[in-house]
């Protein structure tokens, strides 16, 4: 039996020397909205992790990665890079291959060593989708795919990335 998702959407995008990541704030059970203040993006230093899916697993997984990233920082005495974070997320989710967390994570960040923007997405068991343009996830992923595919172009500047264009 698969639990129904709590509803939510997340999108990450690459622009000119920048990345953007956005999510909605709703927590609901089907048509009933329980909270309008339930963020789905979590920041771990230079890396931002978006999580959509089952709300309980959004919390569990974000807490788990806060712990893992904090331990990494203590051990390595540096921030985790987006690429390392991607592999950490992937292996952590695959660890639960036969009893997965019901989440579709999205990562956005800038690699502080190379200065290059980085985004990627995952399925619920950790298969990484390295995209050069954008990543969408959540119950509105179809709609986000359509809009992103239609509006995205290389080297968007940051004000356009945040949907503020004229």
């Amino acid at each position: 039996m698969i639990p129904p998702p709590d509803g939510g959407a997340c999108v990450a995008m690459v622009g000119k020397d920048c990345v953007a990541i956005a999510c909605d704030l709703r927590l609901g059970m089907q048509a009933l909205t329980v909270s309008n203040n339930f963020p789905k993006i979590f920041s771990y230093g230079d890396v931002h992790l978006g999580l959509t899916g089952l709300a309980t697993d959004v919390s569990t997984v974000s807490d788990l990665f806060r712990y893992k990233v904090n331990m990494y920082r203590l051990r390595e005495e540096r921030n985790i890079s987006p690429q390392t974070m991607a592999n950490l997320v992937s292996s952590s989710l695959y660890e639960r291959r036969f009893g997965p967390y019901f989440v579709s994570p999205v990562i956005a960040g800038i690699n502080q060593t190379s200065g290059k923007p980085f985004i990627c997405g995952f399925d619920s068991i950790g298969c990484i989708d390295f995209a050069k343009d954008f990543i969408v996830s959540g119950t509105a992923s179809d709609q986000l795919f359509g809009t992103c595919e239609g509006l995205w172009e290389p080297d968007l500047v940051s004000c356009a990335c945040s949907g503020d264009m004229g």
Binding site: D142, Q143, L144, G146, T147, G150, L151
Partner: peptide, 21 residues
């Protein structure tokens, strides 16, 4: 592909989520 195209149309034809700069 209605679910992909319709939000794009909302934005580009009816200017939804677009604001005066």
């Amino acid at each position: 592909a209605a679910s992909l195209i319709m939000p794009f149309l909302d934005n580009q034809v009816n200017f939804k989520n677009q604001y005066e700069p």
